[in-house]
Design a protein around this nucleic acid. Structure first.
Lengths: 164, 164
DNA sequence: TATTGTTATACTCTATAACTATA
DNA sequence: TATAGTTATAGAGTATAACAATA
């Protein structure tokens, strides 16, 4: 498969070099970890990250989530959620349940099989992630989390401005 | 298009909650920024991130890069590089040049048009990135860069072990 | 009229494997 | 035999837009 280094960080060269370098490093880190997670999900569970993410959302909402909520939470458009949900329904991991008082919508929820399957995947997923941050002290983890919190807050801020 | 928050961070709940939360936040941040960059490249330049990344590599190597080097640097397999390169060649942004002493290979390099086109894109790209990290002080930027440096080093470390 | 969800379509990116041509 | 690159294929993910059913 892929080799190692990737020279993505190579393209920083202006007065805003600091921001560019940071972005490229951020992108590199998340791509490297994400590649590992995707590969693991495919090899060990024959599944994909979007499917895992959808199930993760449902695990936190045992009563189920409407398609629209899923679409919003997963940051993808409706048609995609339909597709992924269909796959999971076909495999018996997920089911569509009625919503009282709105016959257009329904709740998507994990089945028993879905719950036990997800538990296994989540356990393994956790191990990959712990491994990914192995080199960092608890203090580092905390600093990183806080700094990224600022970044995230600013992004959501921008998005909100755009939506209005 | 997409709304705002995304509840991806919702799935953290074990003794390793710290690592999981960090990963989900890291993923969220890079996805939010990446979405903005992709949208901008599409809307303003009718191009894509992989194409931009390929051109960015070439800009740093005016003498050109071999397909294999590009494949390695961009972390994708050879067939993909052929495809993206073909597109860029068709649009006159990039060209394939001979390599002395190896008639199997050639150098891919930016054309004059490619160079001026890329310069424009890079200028805009930089503005998006600066904007994305607007809320952070130079000190924050630096801390973040260093911490992510540890993460990256560890990932490359793991990859190396796997390759051997 | 607006909303929920589906369907149909098209495009990009990706990996894999078989292939050609050089080395 | 090994390497550089291409081709062919298949699959995942995405957005868009038109559509049906219900509110």
């Amino acid at each position: 498969m892929n080799d190692s280094p990737l020279d993505l960080e190579a393209r920083a060269h202006s007065e805003h070099a600091q921001e560019l370098r940071l972005w490229l490093r951020l992108l590199t880190c998340s791509q490297l970890i994400e590649k590992r997670v995707r590969a693991g999900l495919r090899e060990q569970f024959d599944t994909t990250l979007p499917r895992f993410d959808l199930m993760a959302q449902l695990e936190r909402h045992p009563e189920g989530l409407k398609m629209k909520d899923l679409s919003h939470r997963l940051m993808v458009t409706g048609g995609n959620v339909t597709g992924i949900t269909d796959q999971l329904v076909n495999e018996g991991l997920v089911e569509r349940l009625d919503v009282d008082g709105d016959r257009r919508a329904f709740r998507v929820a994990l089945t028993d099989l879905g719950r036990t399957t997800f538990a296994e995947m989540a356990r393994q997923h956790e191990a990959w992630i712990v491994d990914a941050f192995e080199g960092l002290s608890p203090r580092d983890l905390d600093s990183l989390h806080k700094l990224l919190g600022k970044v995230k807050a600013h992004q959501l801020d921008i998005n909100q401005r755009i939506e209005e």
